[in-house]
Amino acid sequence: MTDLQEQSTSTGNGDVVISVRGLKKHFPIMKGVFRRQVGAVRAVDGVDFEIYRGETLGLVGESGSGKSTTGRVILQLDDATDGSITYLDEELTTVSTNRMRELRKQMQMIFQDPHACLNPRMTVASIIGEPLVENSTMDKEARRARIDELLTQVGLDPSHANRYPHEFSGGQRQRIGIARAIALNPEFIVCDEPIAALDVSIQAQVVNLLKQLQEDLSLTYLFISHDLSMVRHIADRVAVMYLGHIVELAEVDDLYDNPKHPYTQALNSAVPLPDPIAESTRQRTILEGDIPSPANPPPGCVFSTRCPVAVDRCFTDEPAWRDTGGGHWVACHLA
């Protein structure tokens, strides 16, 4: 990327909380008795983006696109293979373990599966109180008061603090996970498919709660999801991932009303609308085939093997990541 391009990415609306440059995460494939590395799964293969203070950046893509890995690497739950991640001008890939421990208070995560991410043998109070014990100097009473406040904030009854996770429904468990994530007043939260495991009527409750908390606590979100309709609803800007690359990034309405990458266009037309009349007259682009393996991505543009409009150079040259105007970034030779 040239300096000129770099400049134009960072001049955005408001200050940058997270900045990601050329981020790669490759998982080695080992084989044989001596566990020699024979290849790599290129889960994330060179992505650049910023997240601005107070915004929600939606990160959408299908399974295997690398969206969850991106979120985990940003929080340093996995080490990056290459590239840089800065949090408020501090480089995370080289920061010391102690400093990272400090920074974790400000950077939290909400997980997909509310059944798997809560310890079944801890009460709700101890689950939410654990980060407070570890990271604050609160005494027992102050902690108890804070736990009650957090439970109220996420719409749970403080009198249920001594119950265990199994006594709650999926939606309520997700609220417990959210309470734990906001316990230390973080700046930035990665929401990794926070509603994917929930029923339709409960999804709306949790999304409304996340929006409310963002307003009240001025949080910055990276919202990872495969649900394009929900991302349109919650995000300010949206990045679309395919096979380890971000293929398009734009303001939310711009991306949905005026998608420039053929993959975004196909993805949009593949989402069924809850409206029989609109569905019956809809133009659909049905993509052929499956997503290629990230262990063996195609040369040139990663989308070339399924792209309905690909031309010769798409199969040989990797398209540049460029701003087509108004912060609408796209990686396509034809856009």
Partner: peptide, 19 residues
């Protein structure tokens, strides 16, 4: 309570309570 891809988001209606 279902958001629509082709429309801009407002506050989602949510059915309160549990099944």
């Amino acid at each position: 309570s279902v958001p629509r891809l082709d429309q801009k988001g407002e506050e989602l209606y949510s059915i309160e309570g549990q099944p």
